[in-house]
Write a protein that binds this DNA or RNA. Sequence first.
RNA 1: GCCGAUGUAGCUCAGUUGGUCAGAGCAGCUGAUUUGUAAUCUGCAGGUCGGGGGUUCGAAUCCCUUCAUCGGCUCCA
Length: 646
Amino acid sequence: MIKITFPDGSAREYKKGTNSLEIAEQISPRLAKEVYSATVNGEVWDLTRSIETDATLKLHKWEDEAGKHAFWHSSAHLMAEALESLYPGMKFGIGPAIENGFYYDVDPGEDRSITEADLITIENRMKELAAKNLTYNRKDVSKKDALDLFTKKGDEYKTELISELTDGTITLYTQGNFTDLCRGPHLPSTEPLKAIKLLSVAGAYWRGNEKRRMLTRIYGITFPKQKLLDDYLIFLEEAKKRDHRRIGKELELFTFSPKVGMGLPLWLPKGSDIRQNLITFLTGVLRKRAYKIVTTPHIGNVNLYKTSGHFEKYGADSFQPISTPQEGEQFMLKPMNCPHHCEIYNATPHSYKDLPLRMAEFGTVYRYEQSGELHGLTRVRSFTQDDAHHFCRQDQLRDEFKSIIDLIQYIYRILNFDDFTAQVSLRDPNNKQKYIGSDENWERAERDIIEAAAEKNLKTTVVLGEAAFYGPKLDFMVKDAIGRKWQLGTIQVDYNLPERFELTYNGSDNQKHRPVMIHRTIFGSLERFVAVLIENTSGKFPLWLAPEKAIILPISEKFNDYAGKVLEILNNSDICTLIDDRDEKIGKKIRDNELKKIPYLLIVGEKEVESGTIAVRKQGEGDKGSMKIEEFADFIASEIKKEIAF
RNA sequence: GCCGAUGUAGCUCAGUUGGUCAGAGCAGCUGAUUUGUAAUCUGCAGGUCGGGGGUUCGAAUCCCUUCAUCGGCUCCA
């Protein structure tokens, strides 16, 4: 007998060699139907794998990531089987479960391609196969046998993978007529795969390497119930409605023009207002925190970037240097503000008593992103960073770093951004040549970041290989409407630029010392930040950010004069107000302006003229009753004050 | 940059196998109406069907090319 310990601490004895499914079955037959994988002694296993020793056991249902993972991973294998039966000779890369569903990378062969039109056929074949209740069978094999099997099949991608594995750790899974190299775990059978949907097809480089062959990646998702799939598809549709590109067009916030150039956003008046509101707000906060605001040109001599190291690293992939009538003179559109800020630092002598020096700029930069990477406002070729650099002494670094974490948390709180993750982005230890600077400085900087984040009780994930080439970062990431991750704020410790620009300060010992530099943004860029704001709010901006606060709707043209008077009073009170004096019925005006998401609709007719009031209607909420004009102005002012006071 | 898809009026979309197929709704302009909390009615105007080239008696429809967009990959100072 073996002893199985459950998550609640209780334990029971079972026959040696039993499996998780049998254990679930004994607890309740219903449970057995709802579990998809199990964690045995800390390792996620197939339900049908025999347990030979005493073990801790946790069963995973749909609600657990590990349950979904097995479900979707098994779905990927099912799709592969369907593909193999429909396209004999197709070669397979990898097919993992992902956050929402699964994919498989396949090579259909030279003269064959899979398009979205083919998905329905594949999907139907998957459904036929799933209905057969095929079992997934695990088998340990030697490296030689595995290589033989896939060499015979002609699957060179699999043999490449196997050749890198250690003998004795290789397992195969078979369901129906399909066998795959796989670590597992999988479902016992295809039986639970009730609702199947293939979503899209895309290209993906083999092993993520752009030098290698591009495979066809097919994305899909499955659910144990049709209802769950239906709900998911509805969710995707709803998410699309929040897409900032769509709302940006509907609400006339920004646009792009092929004549101006791809990836170069044109801010329309209302979008500019939002942008400006953010700048004004943040500038106020920065002033209170002892930041000095600076302004630098949009171009810089190419030597500036040679000094910083950016030219060597990115020069070939940047907008190319601008030549002048002067022989040999070249300028670059600035791809970042830091070198300019370093030269501002160097413009005056600094004492240890003056540090930290916090230098901020809303600096517009230009980066030549590859054409296929451009994406609405989140990935553009010209954008304005809310950039700042902290120059400080080594002994101040930790506190400076923490003060920035504070600031970012403060700003995000005001904007109701609670759904972000903090990511510590470190250097890839196996690829050090990608980075500049000494090991000693890197190690010190990485330690500084990790410890500062820990001291602020910030929950972080650590990702190797995501550091900037000159230093590690703490990145604040958010997801957009359809789940793509974007970096907003970032804090970066940099020992390199101070060296390269020979930044110094006089210490208490009257010797020259090297300051440390922290790069940081809060919004990241105004473009990306507004995009995320749009998707978070569906275009229903908080009052303080809204480009227009209210619109006056006269019941008929007879009341246009009064409406004009109200307009004057409100605009004089700095409440940006419009008037809708079209010859339309009030119902129509309300509908149109509700859709424009203007926060307040002010209806004026005979009653209001007589009493000197306005009938206030809040967007999305309806009639709020009538108010004196001045009373409304005070109300709006106090509402705005409340929103941005913390 | 790479793989795949898409591109018809300002916007959202119809246009079957190439042959009155250049259309609709909304927006816009016009006239009527003077309206009380999510769409009043009338009339008009709008497009060399992304651009360029080709096949054909004939192309929005087929082919080539180019530009842009969308979904991914790669990249992201």
